[in-house]
């Protein structure tokens, strides 16, 4: 069980990440980070992102998280596609 983020927009983004198989990791010694989210990936090195406790704009930070989650998953899917290296010419 991970701690809940105090901001509702960021908490929603974290739930979205978890629905897409990302998992929480503590940023124990950090002063500003609430924690990290990790996406361990089979075919390439995994993704990792840092979540602020008090970002400048929680709405923007939530959006940054979602965008990175989508980006990493998309790339992972492309890696698994058999035709991804055979560009149509």
């Amino acid at each position: 069980m991970r701690p809940k983020h105090p901001n509702k927009d960021i908490e929603a983004a974290l739930k979205y990440a978890e629905e897409n198989d990302w998992r929480y990791q503590s940023s124990g010694k950090s002063s500003h980070a609430w924690g990290k989210m990790l996406y361990p990936e089979k075919s390439r090195e995994g993704c990792r992102l840092s979540v602020w406790s008090t970002p400048k704009s929680p709405v923007n930070h939530a959006r940054q998280i979602i965008k990175k989650v989508d980006q990493c998953i998309h790339e992972a899917e492309n890696d698994e596609e058999p035709s991804s290296n055979k560009e149509d010419d």
């Binding site: 950090s30 990792r48 992102l49 840092s50 979540v51 970002p55 923007n60 930070h61 940054q64 990175k68």
Partner: peptide
């Protein structure tokens, strides 16, 4: 990675999100 995140925040970049891939 966490230390770098703190340095980023302290530099005034709390409007940015730090991430890594490989």
């Amino acid at each position: 990675f966490d230390e770098l995140a703190d340095a980023v925040h302290e530099a005034g970049c709390d409007d940015a999100m730090l991430s890594s891939q490989g």
